[in-house]
Design a protein around this nucleic acid. Sequence first.
DNA 1: GACCAAGTCA
Length: 571
Amino acid sequence: MNAIHQEKTIISLIKSCTRKSHLLQLHSQLLRSSHFYNPTIFLSFLSRFALPPLRDLSYSGRIFNDFPETNVSLYNTMIKAHSLGRDSARNGFLLYQELLRLGISSNALSAAVAVKCCTKIESLCNGMQIHAKIWKDGHLSDGLLLTTLMDFYSCLEKGSEAYKVFDDMSHRDIVAWNVLISCYTRNGRTRDALALFDMMRSSNVCQPDDVTCLLVLQACATLNALEWGQKVHSYIVEHGFLNARNVCNSLIVMYSRCGCVEKAYEVFKQMVDRDVVSWSAMISGLASNAFKEMQREGVLPGDQTFTGVLSACSHSGLINEGRMFFKCMSRDFGVKPNIHHYGCMVDLLGRAGLLDDAYELIRSMTIKPDAAMWRTLLGACRIHRYVALGERVVEHLVKLKAQEAGDYVLLLNIYSSSGNSEKVIEVRKMMKEKGIQTTPASSTIELKGQVHEFYADDISHPRKKEIYEMLVEINQQLRIAGYVAEITSELQSKSEPYVLSYHSEKLAIAFGLLATPPGTTIRVAKDLRICVDCHNFCKILSAVYNRKLVIRDRNRFHHFREGRCSCNDYW
DNA sequence: GACCAAGTCA
């Protein structure tokens, strides 16, 4: 009795672990006790490590292999974990075959997760083999398994097979119906998907849920079926699905595809927790509708139009739209891409981490790339830590004789963030030899019509004593809130090694904090990029001091509020 | 008693 109680406690302890470090600690503790070899406890451990949010395949694979026993559940968990990734799904299927080879009796769940792997790797014949085995093992009454199988056929565009499975099901729950709808939309029977929504509503088999709405809205968007969409919208309102973010996002997409941006905007405005998807959907809706409207009014888009559209795409990370517009501008509108268009595309691809594509694009250009273009790419190399490409880009800049101190600083940052200190020293030396001067960065803040300018470690301001005292206090406060100064990854334009000092923006912010009443937004402009450390500083400061902070640096605006920044991570 | 199915932008 006691043992069972203990087991339960340990399992709930494992479940409550949200951090990998805690879990690892618990793991090593248990490893020393006898509990670890309890298969039930080990299973809950394994699934914690193998499945999202942690999903560490190599670690979970190791403990799975090291564990002295095996059983179906352990295998199922591992197969499931592998089925979630495109690259790992093949190994998931191999694990399933291993399970069969070992003679461990597989169950319906094993088949389900193995089928999931086949869906991911798009292997029809492997999936059909499993289907045959399901038949043989008599698992045909398992609704979950059959739903998975249906989805498999649907994803591989074997609609008729999927319908057959559906027909043979003895009990169909809402998920099965939803899979059927998604199968219809995927396999070119979009109108039937809509009809199904009506059928479900009028019969009392299964009432549409939020996912049903999601799927049907998708169908409406492709069919341009505005009235249908509105019907679904009112159903959503009636059933209180409007607080589901993904439902709202789908509504936005549906309305903008149907040309009703106003309606889309209405939905967008009443949302309380908008995420990237909501914003991207809204932006792309606005952009493409404005674009369509322009054509309707017979105004031909010019090169400036595309600069606007492309830069909107690049700022909102709309990669596919950007690519689409870029392709159609010359093909359909006879607008030859100019250097700005290419610049937007390089920025777009670079931000998305598609650096090789960006490099290829520059190479393919008929016009000569300018320094700004290479610099954009260099910035992207810095973000995504592409050392080799970064070096090549600097070579191009040198060839153009356009290299600036800032470029070397960027290169320095690339090396230092990838931990290559030898190269850092080398570049520094070269900069010294070439006599490259770095201009000190400055930050400005406006107060009652007067602009105050600060440099790093500036002591020229009349209120410098207060400002530095304020900074000491801020640092204390922020440290309590968990701020740790980050000095390793970032180097500013100083040629000296990093000394613990205050960048200009910190001085400006401290001044703003002491010179303005609580609640005032602090606005600072900086001529270079804000560094990671100052960025963290701002994030935490905005929460601790409950102030909104707007920093405009060389690249963009950063809006800090309640411990967060508008640019999700640093850039 | 633990492990399981569908789904938002592109």
